[in-house]
């Protein structure tokens, strides 16, 4: 019943047997104990579980681990040494983008991708691009400010993600 998969998670080669029904999110959390990836809605709406799959953001709750054999996964833990993510995290701290913190890992992944693709995004652009990440504290004002501030800093430092 179980299927063997090999994939890269935060740079480490992983080989495990998984049940086909196991989501990438559960695989990361339960098998690998990478608990920064949070599960909110478990049907692809809230964005808390957003991680990078082969260099692009994806919902870990609606990706089956078994279908990701050979993929390269990067969770927010994998960005610990990433300079751009460091600036984004600090901006979230300074601009009150953090409240309870539950949505933050997904927010950070989406924000970094947004800044990489659209460094000049304005408030409306940021809100539209971040609409797939829900904050139940409704702290959107701070989150938008954080992303704008991080984008400006990264752009003035010439450090694009």
């Amino acid at each position: 019943m179980k299927v063997t998969i090999s994939l890269t998670v935060n740079g480490a080669q992983i080989r495990r047997d998984v049940e086909p029904r196991t989501s990438l999110a559960d695989f990361l959390r339960e098998e690998l104990r990478l608990t920064a990836t949070h599960l909110g809605c478990e049907h692809g709406v809230c964005g808390a579980c957003t991680v990078m799959v082969d260099g692009a953001p994806a919902r870990a709750c609606i990706a089956l681990a078994v279908s990701l054999d050979g993929a390269e996964i990067r969770t927010v833990e994998g960005f610990a040494e990433d300079a751009a993510m460091g600036v984004i995290k600090e901006a979230f701290h300074q601009e009150h983008g953090l409240q309870c913190g539950f949505c933050t890992p997904g927010m950070l992944i989406s924000a970094r991708d947004l800044i990489a693709r659209h460094p000049e995004a304005d408030d409306v652009g940021i809100r539209r691009a971040m609409s797939g990440n829900l904050c139940r504290c409704t702290g959107y004002q701070g989150i938008v400010r954080s992303i704008k501030s991080a984008a400006r800093q990264l752009s003035s430092q010439g450090k694009q993600p």
């Binding site: 692809g44 964005g47 957003t50 799959v53 692009a56 953001p57 994806a58 919902r59 990706a63 989406s110 991708d113 947004l114 691009a129 609409s131 797939g132 990440n133």
Partner: peptide
């Protein structure tokens, strides 16, 4: 939907 969904 959203970019994370559009990627897949």
């Amino acid at each position: 939907a959203y970019r994370a969904v559009r990627n897949r």
